[in-house]
Design a protein around this nucleic acid. Structure first.
Lengths: 331, 331
DNA sequence: TTGAAAGCGCTAACAC
DNA sequence: GTGTTAGCGCTTTCAA
C-alpha cells in the first residue's frame, strides 16, 4: 500500500497542499479547515516525509556520530549524553562504528556529510580531518572527541580530557599508596594516551620516582596485552627493578590488563597495584581504582556544540577525577 | 560558503545535470565527459545530497534502531552486529534510546518513520505496535527484538531467545552444582523474563525442586534490587527455606544483584550461588557463570531481515548457551 | 551519448 | 484564510 502524500491529504480534505502544510506546521487557519485536514491525515494515516522537509531547510535534524570502538564504556556514556541532548532538540542520532579502520572512518564521515547531518561528533584519527574542516567551514559544526585540533576553523570544536592531569592524579595516588616502581600499558600513539603517560612521568619525577621508557609497554589490542606485560616484566627483571604497580592508560584495555595480571598469578593489590582509566559499572565490585572522565557530560556538551552552533572554535577540556577503591592497596 | 549542487557541477563541466547524474551513478557516458564531470566535482568539492536521492527511491538508506536501554551489554553487541551489516549494505544506523519510557518509544518510532528508514529494529514495549504494523504493511521491514509478535503481518519480524530453554539451562546447571533452593530476581513483566522464570520453574520441578512465587523478587530498576533481595531472604526465612542460589533473570541487573549479595556479606559461591543472563567482558575475571545469548549474531540477523526483505513474517529464535565458571560452586 | 523537461514531496512567496 | 505558483536538489523518461 502506497504512502499518502501531502497532495493526497489535500485532495481528501478538499483544500490545497499549502493549507495542509500550514495546518501541520502551525500557520494561520480556520478551526474548521484544520479539523478537515486532521481528519484526512488520520484517515490516510499520513506521515510527513522528514527527508523532503530537510531539503528545504538545507539540513536534516540529525546528528552524526562516528565512533572508533563502541565497546569502550566511555563511548557508551558519551552516546547516551549525545542522544539525550539530540532528543531534547528534536533530533535523531546517526551512528556508525569504524572498528578503528581509517578507510571506514573516511567513508562514514563522507556518508554522514552526504546525509546532510546538522553536525558531526566523532572520535576518529586524522584521516578524515580534511573533510571535517570543509564541513565546519560550510556551516556544519563538527566536534572532535578525545583529541584537540590545531588551527581549528570556526565550527570545528574539540572535547577532551585534561590528560596530563589524569596522569598526575595517577602518580600522586600511587605514591600516596607507597608504590615506587610503576609500569604502564598503553594501546599506542593516540595523543590522549601519550599525554597521560607524560603526566604520569612528570608527576612521578617530581617525587623522585622514575618511569623509564622500558617501563612502558604497548599493546595494540586486547590480544597483545599478555605479551606486552610479559615483556615489561622481563625488562624490569633485567634491570633488577621489579614493578609494584601497573597503570593501564586506556579504558579499552582494562579487562585485558587486569586478566593478564591475575592470569600470571599476581594478586591485586598485594603483589601489584592496578590503576586504570575510565570508570565502569563493575569497578566497585572489583575494587578497581580508576581515573574517571565525565563521559556522559562530555557527550551532552558535544551535542550542545552542535545544537547551539557557537561562532568561534571552542575547545572544551574536562577535568578527570580519581575514584579510589582498593586496587592500589589504599588504606 | 554555499554547497555546490548538481547544477553547479553541470555548469562548471559544461554539460547537463542529467549527464552529471549519469556519471555519478554509472550510466552510459564518454570517457571525456566523465573526466570533465569528475574534475568539476573535485573543483567544487561536490557532495551529492543523499536526502534528495532518497526522495526518489522513496526510502533512505538508513536502518532505524530504537533501544530501551543502551547500558545493557546485550544491546551494545546487538548494535555492533546491526552496524556491521548496515555498513556492508551501504547503509547508516539511526539510533535512539527510549530510557524505558513509552512516550519516547512512540515518538522515536514515529520520527524514524518520518525519516523514511528502510527498516526498523527495536526492543520496545507494545506501545508502538500499531505504527509498527502499519509500517511493515507499507513495505518497511520491522524487527522486534526480545519479544515475539502475535499475528505478525508480512514484513513484521521478531528475533528472540529461547527463553524457556535459558531457564532450563539454569535449572540443570544449578541442580548439577548441588543447589536446591533457588531464588530469582527479575526486573518485571517483560515476556522474556517471565519465560525464563517459567523455564527455570519447569525444569526445577522435573527434578523435584520447588520455585514458589515467594522465591521470585521483582526489582524495577537497579535501585530497587537491594530491597527486593531483602524481601526475598525475609520470606525464605519465614518459610524456613533458606535460599542457596540466586538467579538474575536479566543482564541489566547483574551488577546490582551481585553487589547486593556481596554487600550483605554473602560470599559467592560458598554462601550462595549466583547465575545470571548475558555474557559480559568482566564475567571471566569475576568467575560469574552466565547463560549467554548470541547478541552480535542476533544483531546481524536482525539487520539482514531489513536488508533482505523476506516476503513472509519470520520469527527467529536463538538458542542460549550456558557458560560455566565458578559462581555456582562448579567443580 | 547527451539534453530538455517533468516530477519526487514538500515549503514559501505572492496573490486573492 | 486560502489557493496558485515556483522551486529545493536530484533522477528519469523521452527525444534528438
Amino acid at each position: 500500500m502506497k504512502r499518502a502524500t501531502i497532495g493526497d491529504v489535500a485532495a481528501h480534505a478538499g483544500v490545497s497542499t499549502a493549507t495542509v502544510s500550514r495546518v501541520l506546521n502551525g500557520g494561520a487557519v480556520t478551526a474548521t479547515t484544520a479539523a478537515k485536514v486532521w481528519s484526512a491525515v488520520a484517515a490516510l494515516e499520513y506521515s510527513p516525509n522528514a527527508l523532503t522537509k530537510s531539503i528545504f531547510a538545507g539540513r536534516s535534524r540529525t546528528i552524526g556520530v562516528v565512533i572508533r570502538d563502541l565497546s569502550s564504556p566511555f563511548y557508551l556514556d558519551l552516546i547516551r549524553g549525545i542522544d539525550e541532548v539530540a532528543t531534547a532538540d528534536d533530533s535523531l542520532v546517526m551512528f556508525a562504528n569504524t572498528f578503528r579502520d581509517a578507510d571506514r572512518e573516511v567513508a562514514h564521515v563522507r556518508t554522514m556529510d552526504e546525509h546532510r547531518v546538522r553536525g558531526l561528533i566523532m572520535t576518529t584519527g586524522e584521516s578524515a580531518d580534511g573533510r571535517t574542516r570543509r564541513m565546519a567551514e560550510s556551516g556544519v559544526p563538527c566536534v572532535i572527541v578525545a583529541r584537540t585540533v590545531p588551527d581549528a576553523p570556526p565550527g570545528l570544536h574539540s572535547i577532551s580530557l585534561n590528560n596530563i592531569e589524569a596522569g598526575r592524579l595517577m602518580a600522586a595516588h600511587l605514591a600516596a599508596c607507597g608504590r615506587s616502581a610503576v609500569g604502564v600499558v598503553t594501546s599506542g600513539r593516540r595523543p590522549s594516551q601519550v599525554e597521560r603517560t607524560l603526566g604520569l612521568r612528570l608527576a612521578l619525577a617530581e617525587r623522585g620516582l622514575p618511569l623509564p621508557p622500558e617501563a612502558v609497554a604497548v599493546a595494540e589490542s586486547e590480544t597483545g596485552v599478555g605479551a606486552a606485560i610479559d615483556a615489561l616484566f622481563a625488562r624490569a627483571h633485567e634491570r633488577q627493578a621489579p614493578v609494584d604497580a601497573i597503570v593501564c592508560a586506556t579504558g579499552r584495555l582494562t579487562v585485558a590488563v587486569h586478566s593478564a595480571l591475575t592470569a600470571r598469578g599476581l594478586t591485586v593489590p598485594d603483589d601489584i597495584a592496578f590503576l586504570t582509566m575510565d570508570d565502569f559499572p563493575w569497578a566497585t565490585a572489583l575494587g578497581i581504582t580508576v581515573v574517571a572522565q565525565p563521559s556522559y557530560e562530555m557527550g551532552r556538551e558535544a551535542a550542545k556544540l552542535v545544537v547551539e552552533q557557537p561562532d568561534e572554535s571552542v575547545a572544551l577540556v574536562f577535568e578527570p577525577t580519581l575514584v579510589p577503591r582498593t586496587s592500589c592497596g589504599e588504606r
